[in-house]
Simulated assay, not measured.
Amino acid sequence: MSETAVNEMSFEAAMAELEKVLGQLERGDVALEESIALYERGAQLKARCETKLKEAEEKVAAITLDGDGKPVGTRPVEGL
């Protein structure tokens, strides 16, 4: 497991670590206590990925297009 705080991770870093965590849990070759710690870390990583995806979706939705479909600016998105 990474020592990086989950709330400081990029989407890509969180997703990569989540995949590693899932792989370890699926193999089932870790002790019970470590499995619990991995599960907890995995839940945090999943939440981080969901948050980062939601932020990206909101930014994309805020892009304003002109008549030709070209971006001309953005509008404020509530909560950002």
Rank of each mutant, 00 (worst) to 15 (best):
M1W: 07
S2F: 01
S2E: 13
S2R: 10
E3Y: 11
E3L: 14
V6P: 01
V6N: 01
N7I: 08
E8N: 14
E8W: 13
M9T: 00
M15L: 15
A16Q: 13
E17I: 03
L18R: 06
E19V: 15
K20P: 03
K20S: 13
L22V: 11
L22M: 14
G23I: 04
G23C: 04
Q24S: 06
Q24H: 04
E26R: 10
R27Q: 12
R27T: 05
G28H: 00
V30Q: 11
A31I: 03
A31N: 09
A31P: 04
L32W: 12
L32F: 14
E33H: 08
E33D: 13
E33C: 02
E34I: 08
E34F: 09
S35F: 02
I36C: 02
I36K: 10
I36D: 10
I36W: 10
L38S: 06
L38I: 04
Y39K: 14
E40W: 07
E40Y: 10
R41F: 01
R41D: 02
G42T: 01
G42V: 00
G42A: 00
A43T: 14
A43W: 06
Q44F: 02
L45T: 01
L45R: 00
K46G: 03
K46H: 08
A47D: 09
A47Y: 04
A47I: 03
R48Y: 08
R48N: 04
R48L: 09
C49I: 09
T51N: 09
T51R: 09
T51G: 02
K52Y: 02
L53V: 13
L53C: 05
K54D: 15
K54M: 14
K54G: 10
E55S: 06
E55A: 05
A56D: 11
A56F: 14
K59S: 06
K59Q: 12
V60L: 15
V60W: 08
V60F: 12
A61Y: 03
A62G: 03
A62W: 01
A62C: 01
I63M: 12
I63R: 00
I63E: 04
T64D: 00
L65Y: 10
L65G: 03
D66R: 05
G67T: 05
G67F: 12
G67M: 11
D68V: 03
G69I: 03
G69F: 04
G69Y: 03
G69E: 05
G69V: 05
P71G: 06
P71E: 04
G73P: 08
R75Q: 14
R75D: 09
R75W: 11
P76V: 07
P76C: 08
P76E: 12
P76I: 07
V77Y: 00
V77L: 01
E78A: 15
G79S: 14
G79D: 13
L80T: 03
